[in-house]
Structure formats: C-alpha cells, structure tokens
C-alpha cells in the first residue's frame, strides 16, 4: 500500500503527532481533565484527517487504473478501510501515550479510556476513508475533505467526548448503550462504503 511505497508520509504523520503534542505541552503544561479530554479528541481528529486523507488523494490516476484492473471495488474499499483502521489504531495508541507522557495523566480508568480511544480512532478512520474517496473525485482535495467531513463527524465526536468524560472519575460509569451505538454507527459506515463505493470507482 501507499505507506510502504512512500514511507515519508508515515514518518510525516508521526512527526505531526509529536510536534503538536509538544507544542501543547509548551503552551499549557498540565491541563485539567476537561481540557485534556477536549484537546485529545480534537488532536485525534486532525491526526485522522492527515493520516487517512492521503490514502486516496495521493494515489496517482495511473495506479488507480492498475488497481481497477486487478481488484473488484468491494475488495479494494474493504482493504483501504482495514488498512486505515489499523493505521489509525496505531496512531491513536501513540498519541495517547504521548499525551500521558507530556500533559499528565488525569484518566482514572485507564482500560476504559484506552478502549474508547481505540473505538473512536476506528470510527474516525472509517468515516474519513470514505470521505477521502469522495474528495478524491473532486479535484480540490484537502479543503473539500474538511468541508464534507466536519459536519458529519461532529455527532460522533460529541458522543465520544461524553463517553470519555466518565473515564475521568471513579464515580461515573460508561453507559453501555452509547458504546453499542458507536459500534453500530461504525458497522453502518462500512456497509455504506461497500454499497456506495462501486459508484465512485467507475470513472
């Protein structure tokens, strides 16, 4: 896939994560848990845009033609979704580690929060993979991706922030129903991608 051929993009994202979190540390040292939570998810969102957007935007049209001749659209989009999910999971764990290292660790229930971070990273990567496929068709790329993606992702982010609030105190419990809702949303995105991608594929 793209990241192995163009390794600089992968290291670019790593550098991006490191640099942003370091800047945050310089600016606000050890924030309280509410700020920590908000910042974490916003950074997560931008990492996702940077990491996932490349998956379609930097493929040259010649290479797309090559993929077109060797794979069916369903397999192709599933492969992209799988790869981007894995990539985003790695990035999420990395940024969580760096956040805990630099900005202090206000999380009380580490296991729950890590679970939520993985779930959130997975959801973000799925949505943005599909949006990247759409944005790749409109030649203005990165800008159009932000316009298309932000309104769609806001509800999911609100849900994630609400849920992860519970991980910052011992007394609150994470509502299981909402976690299920997120999982259901993710499954729906995969289904939609599989159904709709063949229409984007033909050019």
């Amino acid at each position: 896939m793209l990241e192995i051929r163009q390794q600089y993009t992968f290291y670019g994202i790593l550098l991006y994560i490191g640099a942003t979190i370091f800047v945050l540390y310089m600016a606000i040292d050890e924030p309280e848990s509410k700020v920590w939570n908000g910042l974490f998810w916003v950074i997560q969102l931008f990492i996702c845009i940077n990491a996932v957007a490349k998956s379609f935007l930097q493929e040259s049209s010649g290479r797309m033609l090559y993929f077109y001749s060797i794979a069916s659209p369903r397999d192709f989009v599933l492969a992209k979704l799988l790869f981007n999910s894995l990539l985003m999971l790695v990035m999420s764990v990395l940024s969580l580690g760096l956040f805990a290292l630099f900005l202090g660790n206000p999380v009380q229930k580490a296991g729950t929060f890590t679970g939520l971070v993985l779930l959130g990273g997975w959801g973000l990567s799925l949505v943005f993979t599909f949006l990247a496929a759409i944005a790749a068709k409109a030649r203005q790329n990165a800008a159009i991706m932000a316009i298309l993606g932000f309104p769609i992702i806001i509800p999911q982010l609100i849900l994630l922030m609400q849920l992860s609030k519970a991980a910052f105190s011992d007394s609150l419990t994470v509502p299981f129903q909402n976690v299920l809702l997120l999982v259901a949303l993710n499954i729906m995105v995969i289904l939609l991608a599989v159904i709709l991608f063949p229409f984007l594929w033909k050019d």
Partner: peptide, 18 residues
Amino acid sequence: ARVSAVYNIFAYAMLFPS
C-alpha cells in the same frame, strides 16, 4: 451527479445520529 448522489446518501445516513 454520481459523486454528489453518493455523498447525499452517506450524509443522510449520518444525519440521524446528529
């Protein structure tokens, strides 16, 4: 027409949670 129809369907499906 094709791309915007795809986005329309996708966005509508994501609109419910919002």
